[in-house]
Structures are given as C-alpha cells and as structure tokens.
Write a protein that binds this DNA or RNA. Structure first.
Lengths: 196, 196, 196, 196
DNA sequence: GATGAATGAGTATTCATTCAT
DNA sequence: GATGAATGAATACTCATTCAT
C-alpha cells in the first residue's frame, strides 16, 4: 500500500505537469500542438501521456475542464455578490482571460465529449444564465438578451484580440468593454433574430 | 481563339468548382481541410487542384481574396452613402455574412501571403478606417474606437454564432447588433487598454 | 496529299526539336528530366511529345539511338583507316565525348528496350569488336582484352569526369588517355577475372 | 541501464537492417530508391526509417559514411605498408569493391551534405593523395597523375562492371587491373588536359 | 495533328497511438 | 508504472500519361 501511495504521488505529479504543459502548448500552437511536444515540455515520455489520457482529445478536454471548473467556482462565489452587473462582468472578464490562454471554442463540440466536461460545462452555463437574469433584474443588462447570448459573446474578446499577436496581452479587455457596453440597457436597439 | 476559349471554359468551370469546394471545406474543417477532400468535393482529381493553385496556401488565399475583393467593392460603393453610420453597419453585416462561410481570421497572417491578397486586404482595411472616421464625424460611432477595433470586432459575430451550428444561419445578425450597440456613442463607458 | 506533306514536314521538325531538347535536358538533369521541361524546351505541347514517343523511355531510347547510330557510322568509316590503333582510340574518344552529353549507361538495360535501339547497339558493338581485334593484330592493344572490355571501359571517362562538374568539359580526355595506356601492350600485367 | 540496453539492442538491430537494406536498394535502384521500399526490405515500418534518419538524404549519407569510414580506416593502416605501390592498389581495390555495393558517386555532391560525411570524405581523400605521392616517389605510379585523378578513376571499375549484371561479382577486378596498368609509369603517354 | 487540362499513382514526411522492454 | 521505439494512416505535392477540344 505505501508503495502504491508513492506511485500515486508520482502519477499525480505527472498528471499535473501534463495538464500544465498541454495548456501551454495548446495555447501556443493551437489544437495542432503535438503530443510529443507536450510530453517533452512536461518532462515525461510520450507513453505516459497516453496512460493518463487515452486520447489527445481527452487531454484537451481535461485542460478545458480545468478552466471550466475554475470559472464555475468563480461563478458560484460571484453569484452572491452585491452588484449583480459588476459580478457578471467580472465573470466575463475571467472567462475571456482564460480563453486568452486556450480557445474555449472547443466548448461547442458537444457531441463526443468527455462526460465530466459536459457536466462541468452545464454547471457553468447554468451559473451564467442565473447571473444574467439577476443582472437583468437589477437593470444592469438589457432585457432582450439571454444567458446563451452572453455565453457566446464572452468568447469573442479573446478571439478578436488574438488577431493581433503583437498587441498587449490585455487587449481583450478593450473588446470585452465594448461588448459589455452593447449588453447594457442604455441605447439598446431592438435585436434581429431570436436567441439560438 | 475559339478552341482556346472552349478549353478555358472547362478550366474556368473547374476553377470555380474548386473555389466553391475549398470555401466550403475550409469553412467546415478549418485551415486543416485536406486538398484531397476539396478535390473530391469539387469533383476533380487532386492534380487539378495543383494545376490551378500551386499550393494549398494559394488556394486558401484565392478563396479569401474572393471574399475580400467583394467586401472592398461594397465598401467603395457604400463610402458615398448618405448615412455614414448605416453605411458602416451595412458593411459590417456584409463582412460578418461572408465569414459565416469562411473564417477570415486568415487575414491576420500577414507574413508570406499572396501579394494580391495583401493588397486587397490593405484596400479593404483603408476603406473601413475611412468609413469609421466618417461615421464618428457624423456621431454614429463612439469617438474612442479606431478603425482597427472595428475591423477586429467585425470578425466576432460569425465566430460566436458558429458555436451553435443548429441555430439559424442568420444568427450572427443578432450578435452583430449587440456589438454595434456597443460601438455607438450612447451609453459608452471609457475603454481600458489602447487600441492595438 | 500535299497537305499531308506539309503536316509531315511539321511533324518532322517537331520530332527533331524534341530529340534535341531531350538530349539537352537528359544531359543536364539526368534520366529524371521531366517531359514537361523537354516539351517546353522544344517549344511544343506536352501532348506532342507523346504523339511522337509513346513513352518517356521511348524518347530516351530515341536519343540514345541517335548517338549510337552516329558512333556506328563513325566506326564504319574508321574501320578502313590505316592505323588500327589510332582508329580505335579515335572511336573511343568519340564515344566518350558523346557520353559527356548523355550517359550511355542506358545501353545496359537490354531487357525491354526498343528493337531498333538493340539492333543499332549490336551493330556498334560488332564494329568495336572488329576494331579491337584489328588493333590487337597490329600490336596497338594488349592481347588479353576483349572487345567487350573495351566497350565497357569506354564508358568510364565521361562517368568519372562527371564527378567534377566545375572542371573543363574536356576533362574526360585525360581519363580516356590513362585508360588507353592501360589497354596498350607495353607494361601490361596479367588480368584477373575473365572477360564477362 | 540493462533495460535501456535491451531497447537499444532492438533499435540497433533495426538501424543496421535499415542501413543494409538502404545500401542494397540504393545500389539496385540508384538514388531514386524509395523510402517505402527500403523500409519494406528492412522489414520495418516507414516511420521507423524516419525515426533513425530524419531525412532520406541522411539515410543515404549514413550508408555512404559507413563505406567511407571503412576505407579511411584501411587507408590509415595501409599508409605504413612496405610497398607503397601495392598499398595504393590494395586501397583502390577495396574502394572499388565497396562501390560494387553502392555507387559512391554521391561523394561528388559537396553542397548540403552531412557534416560528418564531408569530414570523413576529406580524411579519405587526404589519405589517398598522400598514398599516391608516396607511390609516385617509389616509382610505382606515373608522375603526371594527381591524387584526384586516382580518386576519380577508382570509381570506374564498379561503374563499368555494373553494366554486365550477369557477370561474376568480381569482374570489377579486371577493369581495375587495366586502369592500374594505365597508372603505371611504364609505357605512359603524355596526358592531355590538366587534372581538375 | 497539336495543345494543355485533367488524372491519379507515387513520394517524402508527420504524428497519434500501440506495445515490448 | 514509465519509456520511447515502432507503426501506418494521412498529407501536400510531382509527374508520366490520357483525352477533350
């Protein structure tokens, strides 16, 4: 049993090295980052990657799961905040900042994903929906947008800031601010198309 | 000449099949779409792709060039419109609609691109910058955004609408409307971070 | 019929352009020269190459045939020369010079070759064998070599001179001279291995 | 360490199978031998070739390096021999024998070759030059040839013997003997063209 | 007859995944 | 458990050959 314990500690250490290395590589090279590079960056053999994550996709899912879990935790904490609008916008900023490191667009692929990831995503989405409703009730967000609208739009700042790799790594904040201004009730024009 | 013409007709048909097929494949599978798949979708042999476009990158560039040229033409026409704000927003809608078919994010790779594509992109960007300034002068767009901000943000609606493939193909219009509301002077909050 | 005549003149002109262009390309790029390049150099379409020579190999064979025919003609002329040794060495020089432009090593592939080429090669070889025997009778060539030995060795000068592309195009003459000295009776040492 | 050793044993076995297979394929099909064929002959997967040799050129270089190293080692040993002429001729025989298995003509491509191969080649060439000079001083080789001449000529026997694939695999000895007779001082005629 | 567009088999190379050690 | 060697499917691209015009 102690032997087992030690091995587990090793395995756990490897697992987190791998997650960290994968996050960095996916951020830097996109979804095409190679398993070999991730293994090298984590300082383990290629085979170890596959012992922990049966598939490259599973590794990616695990990385995303980390981010989603962090966001869901933050959402839980922010839900009780005094200013519902500020709380929502803070969550959106956190989400956009995460994406700066990893395009969460992966979220969309709902089909053959990890079950745990799907669950975490649902938790996060439910939290965001609730926060949006609270912010709308407080008059901080226009009434004609849905939680899903906000979820989708929160992916935009990192995406468009990524077009200018030479810019400051905080550039996404500028575009989030513009989008948030679009989400406010003041000066809102009627929206075409229903929310999906 | 007629003989030549006829041959050209065949080749031209193949060329446009290829451009169409490539646009669809790139839209569906991203930049990693395979030349073989494009050829198959176009109903031609693999070799034919390379006869028309010496490189996969050239094919991609040609597809994007098509879109960019159309947009640049529209921009030229809209620049003289009576309502500068409406004109700009119409151009953004056209741009977002094009992207529904092809992520123009390819635009960012300024490095080793086709010379013609670079030129067309510059033309388009210059036109957008001019339209933004005109719209700002007319009070239709907030004063603290730049042409580049608008160029970047115009890529967002197609991107986020793409996350919900089951939604109406016009869903991007909803998100463009929200972003445009964020670009208006009414209710604008000061922006963090300088424009890149 | 006159029309036919004219067309034939055209065809003949194309055929010789092609042979010339092919000789140059094969000499410059080796056996991997591309049919497209040959056609371009000859100023004709690719299809025309295949009208005249059903196969790239047939084109190569035709080029070689030209050279072999020239050599066979020279051999016929030289056979009656006064000095059998000088005559043989002159023929070898002519052969080595031809190879400078086209590696005749192609001669070896006896299998699936053009029938005409095989016949021409046999004529040439027979002539060389006869000249060698005459030169041996005259004491100009050592008695223990065969015609085939001489045929094989005559391919060496161009081959080895080709290793130094920067050298004078006449460098092969130096190595032919050394080989010829090795073929002379003076200072000949007994040969190991029978002639193949 | 033993574990590592065992793995190495496997890899080493594959590496030598590959070198052997490559030598045979390159000898049989020339430089255009395909990596797939080499892999098949070696009984390994295509990927294994590239694990051992990052490039087809690297594989070719490794094959040639093997031969060149063996020759350079022999040259070092022979340099101290009593009979300088016999020593040189023995080295030439070894070189010609090696080529029977692989046309060293690859040696000529001085451009983008492996650094190790270039170094080994220089060592070998320097050794041959020294042996030639020693043999000339001893009167075993004519004074008007250079080390480079000998280097080039030593490639001829294998080349010409290769024209008769049905002959004894030792046939090259016959042609080397003739060329060596041409290199002796006895009966030497003045050479045209300078040494390259 | 001539042309060059179309074709597809073939090439070197990459990379996720498996497995012997 | 960990390692990295082996694998082979996949990819962009070339080129001899065919064929519609």
């Amino acid at each position: 049993m102690p032997v087992n314990r030690v091995l587990r500690a090793d395995a756990a250490r490897n697992r987190s090295s791998l997650l960290a290395a994968a996050a960095e590589e996916f951020a830097a090279r996109g979804i095409d980052a190679s398993v070999a590079d991730i293994a090298r960056r984590a300082g383990v053999g290629k085979g170890t990657v596959f012992r922990h994550f049966p598939t490259k996709d599973d590794l990616l899912a695990a990385v995303v799961l980390d981010r989603v879990d962090e966001l869901a935790g933050l959402a839980r904490r922010l839900f009780r905040a005094d200013d519902p609008g500020a709380a929502l916008f803070e969550l959106l900023a956190a989400a956009a900042g995460k994406q700066q490191q990893l395009d969460l667009s992966f979220l969309r692929e709902a089909g053959d994903i990890n079950e745990r990831l799907r669950a975490a995503r649902e938790r996060l989405f439910a939290a965001i929906v609730a926060m949006v409703e609270r912010a709308q009730a407080a008059g901080a967000v226009r009434a004609d947008v849905t939680g899903l609208d906000v979820i989708l739009l929160m992916c935009a700042p990192a995406h468009v800031a990524g077009f200018v790799p030479t810019a400051s790594p905080e550039t996404w904040r500028r575009y989030l601010a513009i989008i948030i201004d679009g989400l406010r009730p003041e000066g809102a024009h009627p929206l075409p198309e229903p929310s999906p």
